[in-house]
């Protein structure tokens, strides 16, 4: 997540000081990605250096300096809204790496790894769903008795963040189901009998199980 872009998007609404930016950022994203004030001020310094923001004046009585977007900052912010988020670079995902390693490292119970993770992810999904229920219930109450008429819809922002997390967790559970099915099929697949080293090398792909000392007709015995 680009903190830089997030702060500029907030400053497009009007000048704010560091602690204010931090509070707004966290409120609108439901505190899912907490920022510390140091991070906010470091980012503001860089943005100021690059000419995207500027101080509105001197520090106030409490020593707080407000910042606003420059023209270049406003243009940068506008570009952000119209540019898709880069999906070409694949972030390192610990679970994917863990399972990829689990099928290649001897002695790891891959199904147990997948099952343990699925249980944990489902609990997480359950917690997210409860949070979502609370937000939806609050929205229903607001429909009948508006508590903050005209206020920016921060609940909507939080709901969208929550739903993103719910979809991600659900996708992870589906993928784990798929992993189990894949492992099951792999276990049932007849294995080609190894012949000579030369033929094996020419045969191309080696699997995680090729190095097992005593190949069996099915791979279920491994688990």
């Amino acid at each position: 997540m680009s903190v830089k872009q997030g702060l500029m998007a907030l400053l497009a609404e009007g000048p704010m000081y560091g602690a204010q930016l931090r509070a707004e950022f966290e409120e609108r994203t439901g505190g899912t990605w907490p920022l510390n004030v140091g991070q906010v001020y470091t980012t503001l310094s860089r943005l100021e250096r690059d000419g995207f923001v500027e101080a509105t004046g001197e520090a106030d009585a409490e020593g707080r300096i407000s910042y606003r977007l420059t023209e270049a900052g406003a243009a940068e912010n506008a570009t952000w809204w119209t540019t898709p988020v880069d999906r070409d670079s694949t972030p390192r995902d610990e679970l994917t790496i863990k399972l990829a390693l689990a099928v290649t490292v001897p002695g790891v119970d891959v199904r147990a790894v997948a099952q343990t993770q699925r249980t944990a992810t489902l609990k997480h999904l359950h917690d997210l769903t409860r949070l979502k229920q609370q937000v939806v219930a609050r929205q229903r109450e607001d429909e009948t008795e508006p508590s903050h008429p005209g206020a920016p819809d921060h609940d909507l922002a939080w709901l969208l963040v929550l739903e993103n997390l719910i979809f991600s967790a659900e996708a992870e559970v589906r993928w784990l189901d798929h992993v189990e099915t894949r492992l099951h099929r792999e276990a049932l697949r007849p294995r080609p009998q190894p012949t000579t080293d030369g033929e094996r090398a020419a045969g191309g792909a080696r699997t995680a199980y090729d190095d097992e000392p005593e190949p069996t007709t099915t791979r279920g015995a491994r688990r």
Binding site: Q115, R118, T119, T121, L122, K123, L125, H126, L128, T129, I166, F167, A169, E170, V173, R174
Partner: peptide, 24 residues
């Protein structure tokens, strides 16, 4: 659907007729 199961207090997993895990 995992997303729907998440509305429950508890989720039990069945495989081959056996409960293999429970979340609660």
């Amino acid at each position: 659907e995992a997303r729907h199961a998440a509305w429950a207090d508890r989720v039990v997993f069945l495989r081959d007729g056996v409960i293999v895990d429970s979340t609660g």
